[in-house]
């Protein structure tokens, strides 16, 4: 923990290094002392936790994507992590690093947001559990304060719930940094006529990965039908998304894609 005190002051935590080494090479970060966290024992496990999951922060994303336990309990997460980087990147990139790096386009974030995951942060002052939605504070910024992200807790989800993840990349390859990503987890009532719980998360359309609260509200308790889907998709695009233009896509295209992809995800989840 004494090392944690020095974080930022020339010391960085090294997980898979797939973000850190690129940053060091292009000069954004220089001459730092690195502390490799991959061998800290309890950071490397995937554990069932009630009907949910506990993911060690240093587990690599490809291991999670291929884990039978994850596939069975949270296919949405498995689906999202399967397209996080190439095979080589996925073999190194850790889930904790993906979150701590806090790219608005981080591919693990929308799925974990939709699954209402929390992260455990451990520092010299002790430990705290932070809902993922409150973890990001800006592009590349989080609430981490000289702390180590140790675990990601994914709570159990209703049995009838199903999820979908869409990653729209400029090329369609897994290693593309996305233009827009959308994860939706939705729970219908027993009759499959009404949305009882819908969580929509968006990537690369705001300073951080976000939940589309306006869109979700418009669906809650509503009939599962084309009109509600359309309204929600429109709200997600117009009220929730706050995209910018960059080399991968313009703000207006991103907005349009949020609408399309949210609608598609909801339609897919409406199919009985």
């Amino acid at each position: 923990m004494s090392l944690m005190e020095k974080l930022d002051g020339g010391v960085s935590l090294l997980a898979g290094g797939t973000d850190l080494l690129v940053a060091m090479k292009d000069g954004r970060l220089r001459h730092r002392t690195l502390v490799d966290i991959k061998h800290i024992s309890n950071l490397g496990a995937i554990r069932p936790e009630d009907a949910g999951l506990c993911l060690g922060a240093a587990v690599n994303t490809r291991t999670i994507a291929r884990s039978p336990l994850v596939k069975e309990r949270f296919p949405l997460l498995s689906q999202a992590l399967a397209v996080l980087g190439s095979m080589q990147i996925g073999n190194r990139a850790t889930i904790g690093g993906n979150l701590a790096n806090a790219s608005p386009a981080a591919d693990s974030a929308p799925a974990l947001l939709a699954l209402e995951a929390s992260v455990k942060l451990v520092g010299p002052q002790g430990e705290r559990l932070v809902p993922l939605e409150n973890f990001f504070s800006g592009p590349g910024k989080t609430v981490l304060e000289r702390e180590l992200l140790t675990e990601i807790h994914v709570p159990s989800a209703p049995d009838q719930g199903r999820g979908v993840f869409y990653k729209l990349g400029p090329r369609g390859a897994p290693e593309d940094i996305c233009i827009v990503s959308v994860a939706v987890f939705a729970v219908p009532d027993a009759s499959k006529r009404i949305w009882t719980d819908v969580r929509i998360a968006l990537g690369a359309v705001a300073p951080t990965p976000i939940r589309a609260r306006n869109a979700e509200k418009a669906l809650l308790g509503q009939l599962i039908e084309g009109r509600t889907v359309e309204d929600a998709a429109r709200l997600a695009a117009e009220k929730d998304a706050r995209p910018i233009s960059d080399i991968r896509g313009s703000a207006s295209y991103r907005r349009a894609m949020v609408k399309i992809l949210v609608a598609r995800a909801l339609e897919q989840l409406s199919e009985r």
Partner: peptide, 11 residues
């Protein structure tokens, strides 16, 4: 090559 994209096996 993260911003100059060329085809991959997917294409």
């Amino acid at each position: 090559f993260a911003t100059y994209l060329i085809p991959t096996t997917f294409d």
